[in-house]
Computed example of a mutant assay.
Amino acid sequence: MMVYQLIFSPTGGTQAVANALSGGQVVDLTDRNFDFSSVALTAEDVAFIAVPSYGGRVPLPAVERLGKVHGGGARAVLVCVYGNRAYEDTLAELSDVAEFAGFRVVAGVAALAEHSIARKYAAGRPDESDKAVLRDFQARIQAKLDAGDTTAPALPGNRPYKKRGVRSIVPQAGKACTACGRCAVVCPVGAINAANPKVTDSSKCISCMRCVAQCPVHARDLNPVVLGGLELALKPVCSTRKENELFL
């Protein structure tokens, strides 16, 4: 039996949640150059499939890349990570994507991590309390697997899913940019011009903030007026601490 982590984690929050639940061989769903059709699991394997919630949906690149994986009947634990607003239809959609790829869904988690754009919300999460909850749930998942129970949990969400929102928050390079090209290399969708990293294709950008997180000189950021407006809009729904939701 092999344990896999299939992770779309542009800024590290989703990876931190997944690590609290499991170890295993990592398949990086942010790598736009990887051949995901080469990933083949078996019915004896276990996969932790973890994605952030983008506007209540699974990020489209993650949908497309997971669809190329050969699940082979492997048991799957679905992990949806969100920044304290709401995850809406993310788990339902992820379940459908996983089943289409040949996985058997046996558990699900909706977990908290620092909001990737408005970082003041869910700051520092997953914290130690979150990690303790996730470790305990991992033990419960293992007990279910040891018992040979592969029943699918009831997961929240609607079908049809909510309409995808249009993301228009595009990080820009500032004066400190050295044009090293790191952001262009790590961008999950190839939105940054490799020849001129100060140029970003807004029609491709998914506002994942990976370029901001990976810039070695912290030269990429958001327009402070736009960020301030977003933080203000999120304040009513993000200010109260939410807790992890577990589905077994």
Rank of each mutant, 00 (worst) to 15 (best):
L21C: 10
L60S: 08
S22C: 13
R65A: 02
P156M: 13
V199T: 04
A139W: 14
A184L: 12
A111N: 15
N244A: 03
A219D: 05
E99N: 03
D149A: 00
R164Y: 15
R85S: 01
H218Q: 15
V81M: 04
R159W: 13
G102K: 10
C208S: 01
L41Q: 03
S239D: 13
V51C: 09
A76M: 09
M1G: 09
V27E: 01
H70K: 13
P197C: 00
A219M: 14
Q25H: 15
L230S: 08
G72D: 00
P10M: 06
G12F: 07
I49A: 01
F36G: 00
G73K: 13
V27T: 00
R104M: 10
G83P: 07
R119L: 07
P10R: 01
A147C: 14
D201G: 02
G56V: 12
A184F: 04
A152V: 09
K162M: 10
A176Y: 06
F48P: 15
L248C: 05
D35R: 04
T11S: 04
D146Y: 02
V63S: 07
N33R: 11
P171R: 00
R32F: 06
D45S: 05
R167I: 12
R65Q: 10
P10Q: 00
R65V: 03
G67Q: 11
A98V: 02
V217D: 10
V225L: 15
G229P: 15
N33A: 12
Q172N: 09
G190N: 11
F48C: 07
A184H: 06
P61R: 02
A98M: 06
S9K: 11
P126C: 08
Y82A: 05
T150D: 13
E231M: 12
A110H: 11
L29Q: 08
V79I: 15
N84K: 00
C205G: 07
D201V: 09
L78N: 10
A154D: 15
A111L: 15
M2A: 12
A195L: 15
Y82C: 00
A122F: 05
S239W: 03
R135I: 04
S203V: 11
R85H: 10
T240E: 13
V185L: 10
C208D: 10
A213M: 15
G157F: 13
